[in-house]
């Protein structure tokens, strides 16, 4: 059985600063990896490389035991600090656009479902540029989850969320984990997902080392 995600010896420099320096990581089905490390230690860069958004200088990335390919991109979900939403489209249109990109069969229904889940169904006709930070974050979560990815990359997903939304998010993560999704989670929060059992890894000097559990 191959890993959902496997990184081997990843190196990446930005300018002349080497951010990642031989990082190794595997994620298996139903596993949540909590990635910690100080600011600027390369957590976001690691996610970008792992999600195939950025090419490593050295090292290999594999998804589901294969090299990353366009087809496999349909099975991963990414949430970064940028929401990837269009300010000039409404919440509903944004979600529907991404649902169409992923070719979901029941796109309309899925969109309504997720709008309700992130409690934006009342604001679905509002342009996203008028959204608050928390609303945008909720919509971005819906955007990253809507195609039911098998591997999820989440960079500070709890950012800007209120207590209720945080609890919802934790509940979804739990449910997805049970359904066999592998999750790579970067968060400076640790109380929000206390109920989840996670494997902690620490990013230090561009490598991943075993960290203490929360």
């Amino acid at each position: 059985m191959s890993h959902l995600l496997e990184l081997q010896g990843i190196q990446k420099s930005l300018g002349h600063r080497s951010v990642l320096n031989g990082a190794d990581l595997t994620i298996d089905a139903g596993e949540i990896v909590w990635l910690v490390g100080p600011n600027g230690s390369g957590k976001t860069t690691l996610i970008k490389v792992a999600a195939g958004m950025s090419t490593p200088g050295k090292g290999t990335v594999s998804w589901f035991g294969n090299r990353p390919s366009p087809r496999l991109r349909a099975r991963i979900g990414v949430l970064l600090d940028a929401s990837f939403l269009y300010g000039e489209l409404t919440a509903e249109e944004n979600l529907f656009y991404y649902a169409r990109i992923y070719g979901l069969q029941d796109a309309r229904q899925k969109v309504q479902e997720w709008l309700e889940r992130v409690r934006l169904h009342r604001d679905k006709h509002v342009l996203v540029k008028a959204f608050s930070k928390g609303m945008k974050q909720r919509l971005a979560i819906a955007r990253a989850f809507i195609h039911q990815p098998e591997v999820l990359f989440l960079d500070e997903p709890y950012d800007g969320l209120d207590v209720a939304s945080s609890q919802h998010l934790t509940a979804w993560l739990k449910a997805m984990r049970e359904a066999g999704t592998g999750i790579l989670l970067v968060s400076h929060e640790d109380t929000a997902f206390r109920g989840l059992s996670v494997r902690t890894l620490k990013l230090s000097q561009g490598r991943l080392i075993k960290g203490e559990s929360p």
Binding site: M53, P70, R73, I76, V78, A82, F84, Y102
Partner: peptide, 11 residues
């Protein structure tokens, strides 16, 4: 808000 980067994720 980074929509341009989403293009790297298209299936």
């Amino acid at each position: 808000d980074g929509a341009i980067y989403a293009a790297t994720l298209v299936p």
